[in-house]
């Protein structure tokens, strides 16, 4: 619980942050809300020698309506995502999920960019972003690029982000009135990490399902999509949900830990997918 000594730098712009990253190299780390990084440092699982603080980049805290999509500044805190009227109106699943991350004090510090950059397969936002098929905007020494969420998460705590890149923005589609959504998080205590989470974004068409996108939390080394369920639901009637959900764990590789065996996770994914799709259909 006592971290190793480190130096501390404050970035006054994204460019400055990139410059500092170049200057201090591999041993340095960006810090935003600190609610993933500081616990690791306290346990001495991470020992960066320099912290580069992004947290004062107020111009990276925003939510904007861009027509088809919303753009959200990477430093926007979970609580502000949760409470934002544009998010609530156009992308309810994102705002709802932001309200499930840990407890209020975590939500008042942690940032959307931070939780995605962290790349934790037990994080809730990564699978929601995958179900939404959102995009991340990253800036590095060579300029800016956009990365689809589906291509961003590479492995356990490992993302597509290059060493000197900073996430600046997150883009999510505006969900239409025929789109239902649900994020079902199964946790042992209400403010815990997900043992399993299921994000469902379902397009409805006159009582049947035209398409469904299902993101899975904690079912492998990265957030996953339940593609077998998605296929089975495409064009399906609402009475076919239960059967389709039975293949929710196909292609997943959940781990075993104190919270759940891999078998239990598979079971939960099936039950929770059924309940998530049913909830999405009713929303």
């Amino acid at each position: 619980m006592i971290p190793v000594a480190f130096d501390y730098e404050v970035a006054d712009s994204v460019d400055h942050a990139i410059e500092l990253l170049g200057q201090h190299g591999e041993e340095s780390k960006l810090i935003a809300g600190g609610h993933s990084l500081i616990p690791l440092m306290r346990l001495r699982l991470a020992a960066p020698t320099v912290l580069i603080d992004l947290d004062r980049l107020e111009d990276l805290r925003y939510v904007r309506d861009e027509g088809d999509y919303l753009s959200i500044g990477a430093l926007t805190r979970h609580r502000d995502v949760h409470n934002n009227p544009l998010v609530q109106e156009h992308c309810g699943i994102l705002g709802y999920t932001a309200g499930l991350l840990g407890d209020p004090s975590v939500q008042h510090r942690g940032t959307l960019g931070g939780t995605l950059a962290h790349g934790d397969p037990a994080g809730d936002m990564p699978s929601v972003m995958c179900a939404l098929e959102g995009t991340l905007v990253a800036q590095g020494p060579d300029g800016e690029r956009t990365i689809p969420a589906l291509e961003f998460f590479k492995d356990y705590f490992f993302t597509d982000l290059a060493e000197q890149e900073v996430i600046t923005e997150v883009r999510v589609p505006k969900l239409g009135s025929n789109t239902g959504w649900s994020y079902k998080k199964f946790s042992r205590r209400s403010q815990d990490w997900a043992v399993v989470g299921v994000a469902a974004v379902v397009e409805k068409d006159n009582g049947s399902i035209s398409s469904a996108r299902i993101g899975l939390t904690s079912m492998g080394n990265t957030p996953l999509r339940a593609s077998a369920v998605e296929e089975a639901l495409s064009g399906a009637g609402t009475d076919q949900v239960a059967e389709a959900a039975n293949s929710a764990d196909e292609g997943t590789s959940p781990g075993t830990d104190d919270a759940a065996s891999s078998e239990f996770r598979r079971h939960l994914a099936r039950v929770w997918t059924r309940r998530a799709v049913e909830e999405a259909l009713g929303r």
């Binding site: 407890d103 042992r188 205590r189 209400s190 403010q191 990490w193």
Partner: peptide, 28 residues
């Protein structure tokens, strides 16, 4: 419902922090 110290076969405490040791909060 929640708490229990767990050790592995080597006698290492696996519920070694408040993340793994399930103290209930008010919502529970």
């Amino acid at each position: 419902l929640y708490e229990g110290a767990r050790f592995d076969e080597d006698g290492t405490l696996t519920t070694s922090s408040m993340v793994d040791y399930m103290i209930p909060g008010a919502p529970e």
